[in-house]
Amino acid sequence: MTQFSLNGHTTSVDAPPMTRLIDVLREQLRLTGTKEGCGEGECGACTVLIDGLPVNACMIPVVQAEGTQILTVEGLAEDERLHPIQTAFINYGAAQCGICTPGFVVAAKALLDAQPNPSRTEVREALAGNLCRCTGYQKIIDAVVEALGGQP
C-alpha cells in the first residue's frame, strides 16, 4: 500500500511500485482532470503538485508518492468557488480546447504560491513545461499575470 495526501485527503492505493502516478490518479482514483498528452514529460498536461512543486505525473512512480502531499486540478476550487487562477483562465480566454488547461492551472498555482507578483518573463519561464496548441500562450500569460489582482 502507498499512502499520501491527495487534495487534502489521506489516500491509500494498492499498486505495483513502478505504476505511474498518472495511472493511479486516472484509473484507480478516477480523477481524470490530470491529462496525458505525451507520456514522456514533455507536454505538462499531467502536471500535479507534489509537496508544492509541479511535476509530471507521467514520470513519477507511485512508490515515490509515499508520504507526500499531492494536489491535482480537482483540489484547486473550494467547493463551488473557483481558485482565482481558474477564474482568470475563464475571463481571459486562456482555455480553448481545454486539454492542457488543468496542467497550466496547476503549474500557475505553484508559481503564484512561490512568487505572488511575477513578471511576464517569469510567468513564461514557469510555464515553459506546459505545451498549448490553441492559444499562442498570450492569453494564458495574461491570465496568470492578472490572477493576482483577482486574489482577495
Binding site: L31, V73, L82, A95, T101
Partner: peptide
C-alpha cells in the same frame, strides 16, 4: 465550457 475545463 470554461468552468468545466478549468476544473478538470
Amino acid at each position: 465550457d470554461g468552468p468545466s475545463k478549468v476544473r478538470g
